[in-house]
Design a protein around this nucleic acid. Structure first.
Length: 570
RNA sequence: UCGGGGAUCGUCUAAUGGUAGGACUGCGGAUUCUGGUUCCGCCUAUCAAGGUUCGAAUCCUUGUCCCCGAACCA
């Protein structure tokens, strides 16, 4: 390709889609050779748990690939071949999560269970072709017969059953004549293969368990390897994208498709799934957190599930941007959680209005203001985007400031309030602390300050510099609220690398609930899900637990805090 | 030990024989009525050793380390 045709090169259109990657390149090359080539991907979750951010990467990848061509499509298919663990609740939650993330699959929702009949007929074909047989060994015999990495497999005594007998047995398996474990259907490949996966893998097992869609119609269920590739083929998927741990399955994937002679057929490509520091992404372990009550549910804001992140206040667009940026490769690494945090802040900074809220209130009395003072100030909702508008805040004689914004004996470089020192009240005027009131225990319970009217909405006329600005809420006008501060769920970067159980490194402070917080009056009618920035504190959203007059805010993420860094160094 | 994959700044990822680039993090600085944002700057990488070549992250050889695989899970 020459440089001059760059403008018509499909590869040049990738600019808005994040960095290039080997799968995208593969598809782009195909499209360059044949612009009319069919392009169909699929997202194939098993409905046995909720979607997490790792699935988001896969969704963004698969839907993104389909969009590379105008005729490209991406299916949603539930890989529901194990009725013991799958439920309708998950089927519904997964669809809601995909839509929330901002994607819509093409055509109807597909299910591997839609293909049970076709799969069954193909299995009969394989038996007739002498490529599959019914084995009647026990689980233990099967396992032993499979051999090991260093030892060849042993041929089953049932391997040479006649085609007629296999047909009869398999049909009776399907008819429900046998108990679980009595027989299995195996592909006849090669018990001596160095690839353990190819040592006559199981295609069907007997499971007398009701299926969430097919009920009790089927007493036998196809195994993943038998169902997946054929399901792809039925849907005429062209690119079957999956994660690295399925690389070992590809020879089998190919064997079934080739042996059946299905055409056109899909091809599997693997990529490294997303891993995140301070995070565990494994449906089995997330299920444990839920079942053991370590979190409040699949949508606990600390969970890396899409449902949890949604409740936490994280936006779909931040997630999408993150998934684009982490890239796609065959390297199995762990992305630093700070990259995710960056995209969350970037999006929220642009899209949320600023409000004032005091999380840990400390009372301040402005001694030179009359009892009924009500000084109105206009405060823009966003520092750089006028479209957000403004609201009016009222300064009253008594108000609340953050406990952290006052220190009796401040260290160097602390430019907030201290005895005798000045600070600006955000959007209002400068105050000076003239008296500190303590209780019997010696704890500071109130500050007396003077209000400097000359600095209301203006710099001090005498030119003096007041570096600090703090947020505040009127004592009489502020609203009470509950605030839930969320932090990382684990105390270590790699919870699974920890010796022992991953629950041992759960962060005991991952949720801190604050009651008696004070928020500005404009928040009185904030709807559930509403996202705001509490100035100087972080981004928050209204939790569904909120009740009229008793709002609950979840902290999505704190603002970057360079003072905390300075303070921590000392 | 057998089979399949993978090794590039601290992290993720580009560069497919021709200047090792970007993002995040970290560290400085400027601006700022958010210790936020924004802007500017700096630090830091080709797993190792040989070989081919004018030239190697890229090709070859050997080695090292890491991941996956012996479920009637997906």
């Amino acid at each position: 390709m020459s440089v001059s045709d760059k403008s018509t090169d499909p590869a040049s259109e990738r600019t808005d889609e994040g960095p290039p990657n080997f799968i995208r390149d593969m598809v782009l090359e195909l499209l360059q050779r044949d612009p009319d080539a069919r392009l169909c991907t699929r997202f194939p979750p098993e409905p046995n748990g909720y979607l997490h951010i790792g699935h988001a990467k896969s969704i963004v990848l698969n839907f993104g690939l389909a969009r590379l061509a105008p005729q490209g499509t991406c299916n949603l298919r539930f890989d529901d071949t194990n009725p013991a663990t799958e439920e309708t609740e998950y089927v519904e939650a997964i669809q809601a999560d995909i839509r929330w993330l901002g994607f819509q699959w093409d055509g109807p929702v597909h299910y591997a269970s839609d293909y049970f009949e076709q799969l069954y007929r193909w299995a009969l074909d394989l038996i007739r072709a002498g490529k599959a047989y019914v084995d009647s060994q026990s689980v233990e015999e099967l396992r032993e017969g499979r051999g090991s990495f260093h030892q060849e497999g042993r041929v089953s005594p049932y391997r040479e059953r006649s085609i007629e007998e296999n047909l009869d047995l398999f049909q009776r398996m399907r008819a429900g004549e046998f108990d679980e474990g009595a027989h299995v259907l195996r592909a006849k490949i090669d018990m001596a293969s160095k690839d353990v996966k190819l040592r006559d893998p199981l295609m069907y097992r007997i499971r007398k368990v009701a299926h969430h869609r097919t009920g009790s119609e089927w007493p036998i269920y196809p195994m993943y390897d038998w169902a997946h590739g054929q399901s792809d083929a039925i849907e005429e998927i062209t690119h079957s994208i999956c994660t690295l741990e399925f690389q070992n399955h590809r020879p089998l994937y190919d064997w079934f498709l080739d042996t059946l002679g299905i055409s056109p057929r899909p091809y599997q490509t693997e990529f490294g799934k997303l891993n995140l520091t301070y995070t565990v992404l494994s449906k089995r372990r997330l299920l444990r957190l839920v079942n053991e009550g370590r979190v409040s549910g699949w949508d606990d804001p600390r969970m890396p599930t899409l449902a949890g992140m949604r409740r936490r206040g994280i936006t779909p667009s931040a997630l999408r941007a993150f998934c684009e940026r982490v890239g796609v490769s065959k390297h199995d690494g762990a992305v630093d959680i700070s990259l995710l945090e960056y995209y969350i802040r970037e999006d929220l900074d642009a899209t949320t209005r600023r409000v004032l809220a005091v999380l840990r209130p400390l009372k301040v009395v402005l001694v030179n203001l009359p009892e009924d003072a009500a000084i109105e100030v206009s405060a823009p909702y966003h520092p750089s985007d006028e479209a957000f508008g403004a609201r009016t805040l009222t300064v009253t004689r008594e108000l609340y400031i953050e406990r952290d914004d006052f220190m009796e004996d401040p260290p160097k470089k602390y430019f907030r309030l201290a005895p005798g020192r000045e600070v600006r009240l955000r959007y209002a005027a400068i105050i000076r602390c003239v008296e500190v009131i303590k209780d019997e225990a010696g704890e500071v319970v109130e500050l007396r300050c003077t209000w400097d009217p000359e600095t209301l909405g203006a710099h001090p006329p005498d030119g003096r510099k007041v570096k600090g600005t703090i947020h505040w809420v009127s004592a009489s006008q502020g609203l009470d609220a509950e605030v839930r501060l969320y932090d990382r769920l684990y105390t270590v970067e790699d919870p699974m690398g920890h010796d022992g159980d991953f629950t041992e490194v759960l962060n005991p402070d991952s949720l801190v609930t604050l009651r008696g917080c004070k928020v500005e009056p404009s928040l009185g009618d904030a709807p559930v899900g509403d996202r705001v920035q509490f100035e100087r504190a972080g981004y928050f959203c209204v939790d569904p637990d909120s009740r009229p007059g008793a709002a609950v805010f979840n902290r999505t993420i704190a603002l970057k805090d360079s003072w905390a860094k300075i303070a921590a160094k000392k």
